[in-house]
Design a protein around this nucleic acid. Structure first.
Lengths: 116, 116
DNA sequence: GCCATAGTTAGGCATGTCCTTAACTATGAG
DNA sequence: CTCATAGTTAAGGACATGCCTAACTATGGC
């Protein structure tokens, strides 16, 4: 069972914004400069910068400045961390359903309750 | 390719809080009353109620009041929606890495750039 | 009917988020 | 050097979030 630290807070928070999800989807296709990232977005450059900072703060994105161009790239590990947490919940749910099914087949007396 | 609507905003937002993730984990184990949900949490009941409302608003949780007890249960579909989005990003990333590998093996001239 | 239990509503406060404009720095082209 | 490009910093405004307390309603046990 992974640890997840407090980092899930920041990752899910980062992904809870349409603009930042669009940025992630763009960066999945390959590294890109700040102004290239900003181009399809209808907002000021400082606003874009702030989104990038949120993505960097949670480790979803890394960036490097060469000359006057900052190039951003995705960091897929953190994306995986979030996916893992969700998968863990889903499998817990599925295991519970299985146990519940077995139980009901065995002794169809009392309905479900609590941890079972 | 799924649609995801604007619902991902609310789901990720809901999951971006430690307390609400703890609630989800508890509810995965089975349906539970409001005060039972509140017990392990160090906050007032109204605060717990507000968290439940957030979880219900994004469809992660459904609840039903019988007598004076409100019983909450998880709604796993929405959890799956979030997981699907993340999986989609990851597989896009993996496919891109594959294409990149093929390309570099084929003609190791120009480095990666843009959509490739 | 009386009281404890379970939940709800209302109001308020501190902090966080998302965006803006204005002014600024640094780099590359000519 | 001069100018345009690429990005950055600072300050502030509008609104959302997460929590609280106080006061309230509804139900069930006796």
């Amino acid at each position: 069972m992974p640890n997840y630290g407090g980092s899930l807070d920041r990752v899910f928070q980062a992904l809870a914004d349409e603009t930042r999800r669009a940025m992630v989807q763009r960066l999945i296709r390959g590294p890109v400069s700040v102004s290239e990232l900003a181009r399809p977005l209808e907002m000021s450059l400082p606003a874009v910068m702030q989104h990038i900072q949120v993505l960097e703060a949670c480790g979803l994105v890394r960036s490097e400045k060469i000359g006057r161009v900052r190039t951003c790239r995705i960091e897929p590990d953190v994306l995986r961390t979030a996916e893992d947490w969700l998968a863990e919940q889903r499998t817990s749910w599925e295991r519970r359903l299985d146990r519940l099914g077995d139980y009901l087949l065995d002794d169809p007396g009392t309905p479900e309750q609590g941890s079972l």
